[in-house]
């Protein structure tokens, strides 16, 4: 069978490309909203943890954050999404929502440590300068420290976004059709692995490449602002 025939059989016959399209749509929705959720929660956890690191206050909140980080970074994402779907959200029928929450919480744990690292890496002198002008801790944190920290951690956050996007490929395990599952469905129908799986891989590759480009642009822009 020629390449064109295989292509036609796997993607065009019976509109099989729709599996990929729908799967891609779900992958994008899950990855996008999980990323947003992860950034928000991760950011809050990082601020709480670094506040505790710097001042010794918020002991209980810090302990809760610490337990959360230990659990989520200490167990496989795969197991987490199964637990979320079959135990925690057993009554929720919206699989996409469950996946968003599961991946979001997972990603947040990594984002939190990335952002906290960035905050702690900003020179102490910056804090002292802000405080010495009569500012309270929070004002210095949000106006001075966090902008510098975020700029420093953009490459690491972009890396996390890429990891998250690729990790959503296990969504199929809760019976959800993401891009990977879509490709696998085609494979199971045509008994032809090459076309759908390589095709699916190429689509991931293009998305990751796009994300890297966006990061590069963002970094360049931030640097231009300060030189």
């Amino acid at each position: 069978m020629s390449f064109a025939d295989k292509f036609s059989q796997n993607f065009l016959e019976n509109d099989r490309y729709v599996y990929l399209l729908r799967g891609l749509g779900n992958t994008i929705v899950i990855a996008f909203f999980a990323l947003i959720l992860g950034l928000i929660i991760g950011f809050v956890v990082a601020v709480i943890r670094s506040f505790h690191d710097k001042t010794g206050k918020l002991k209980i909140l810090n302990a809760i954050c610490h337990i959360y980080l230990t659990l989520w970074r200490g167990t496989p994402t795969m197991v987490q999404i199964l637990i979320m779907y079959y135990i925690v959200f057993v009554t929720v029928n919206n699989k996409i929502l469950v996946a968003i929450i599961a991946f979001g919480l997972n990603s947040a744990a990594y984002v939190a440590e990335i952002v906290r690292g960035g905050i702690m890496a900003v020179d102490t002198g910056q804090f002292e300068a802000g405080l010495s002008l009569g500012a309270h801790y929070n004002l210095v944190m949000f106006d001075v420290i966090i902008p510098q920290a975020l700029k420093a951690v953009i490459p690491a956050l972009s890396n996390e976004a890429i990891t998250l996007l690729k990790e959503t490929s296990i969504s199929g395990y809760i019976g959800l059709m993401d891009l990977t599952k879509g490709a696998d469905i085609i494979r199971s129908q045509t008994y032809e692995a090459m076309m759908p799986l390589i095709g699916c891989a190429l689509i991931y590759l293009v998305m990751v490449f796009g994300l890297s480009q966006v990061t590069k642009m963002l970094e360049g822009r931030l640097r231009r602002d300060e030189r």
């Binding site: 020179d123 002198g125 910056q126 002292e128 106006d143 001075v144 510098q148």
Partner: peptide, 10 residues
């Protein structure tokens, strides 16, 4: 006024 200036680079 600090030895290392500590201006806000952002």
């Amino acid at each position: 006024v600090f030895q290392q200036f500590n201006l806000f680079p952002n």
